[in-house]
């Protein structure tokens, strides 16, 4: 990334904070509703200092990772299954689409009833939020694999599991990434929503306690952290993954 872009981004963020400060200083909104940037900064510092924020981040990320790993593994398996058996796809395809359209947060009540206020409940919401997006994307990625690549694999003796592992999955991987990305964003929403409602540790529950104590600065500081994590995961995980794929497949696919 060019230094120029970074410089522009810094200017952008500084601009936002400046505008925010102006809104605050000129009393354009009640100060009880919009805290000053420095209040939020202090809330962030306090959260880091007393460990609550870091602990929250750790907890949420742990739940996210557990849920996402399960969702991706199961989603790929399900996607391969319906790609392999067209009848299966015809039968359950629309059902999966329906399930995918359910927002993660809508699963929370069921998770509560099934698992209680436990890590298991939150991970369930994460998994179920991401699973179907991964499965559906995996299915269409596999459908888009050129038949000659599969024929070439079979021609050289690959079949069954080997054909799936050494030809079909790598051939569809670039397209599957889109599913992982979608899955991750649903999973992240799922973790936070479940934490807000369950209120057992994690960033979501910090949001909740901040609200209860009327600590607006704290609430905003947690929102900022959630956003930063989103940007980092995208940059460190998915951009990197896409770059690796690009370096092999070449710029045009």
């Amino acid at each position: 990334m060019g230094g120029k872009i970074i410089a522009r981004r810094v200017v952008f963020y500084v601009g936002i904070i400046a505008a925010w400060q102006i809104v605050f200083s000129l009393h354009l909104a009640p100060q009880t509703v919009i805290p000053s940037p420095s209040d939020v900064g202090q809330a962030l510092a306090k959260g880091v200092y007393d460990g609550s924020l870091l602990y929250g981040i750790g907890t949420s990320l742990l739940r996210l990772s557990a849920g996402l790993v399960i969702a991706i593994a199961a989603g790929i398996a399900l996607g391969i299954f319906i790609a392999r058996f067209e009848t299966m796809n015809q039968i359950i395809g629309p059902f999966l689409l329906g399930l995918q359209s359910i927002p993660s947060v809508a699963w929370v009540p069921l998770a509560f009833l099934w698992f209680g206020r436990t890590d298991g409940g939150i991970i369930f919401v994460t998994v179920i939020g991401a699973l179907f997006a991964v499965a559906i994307n995996t299915h269409s990625a596999i459908r888009a694999v050129p038949p000659t690549l599969v024929a070439a694999g079979r021609n050289m003796g690959a079949n069954g599991i080997q054909l799936i592992k050494d030809v079909i999955i790598p051939a569809s991987f670039p397209q599957m990434i889109a599913g992982f990305k979608q899955g991750w964003s649903y999973a992240w929403r799922g973790v936070i929503s479940a934490e807000v409602i369950f209120s057992v540790l994690g960033l979501g529950s910090l949001l909740n306690s901040g609200t209860k104590n009327n600590q607006i600065a704290e609430v905003i500081s947690v929102l900022i952290i959630i956003m930063i994590i989103g940007v980092l995961v995208d940059g460190l995980v998915f951009k990197r993954l896409e770059r690796t794929v690009l370096s092999r497949w070449g710029p045009v696919k």
């Binding site: 024929a151 070439a152 030809v167």
Partner: peptide, 24 residues
């Protein structure tokens, strides 16, 4: 078979393409 479009595997290096069947 040598396929009309080559049908090489883009995720593998040239050498690994050549060795694919041997590995299988």
């Amino acid at each position: 078979m040598v396929f009309q479009e080559g049908a090489l595997f883009p995720w593998l290096k040239v050498v690994d393409n050549v060795e694919f069947g041997l590995k299988i």
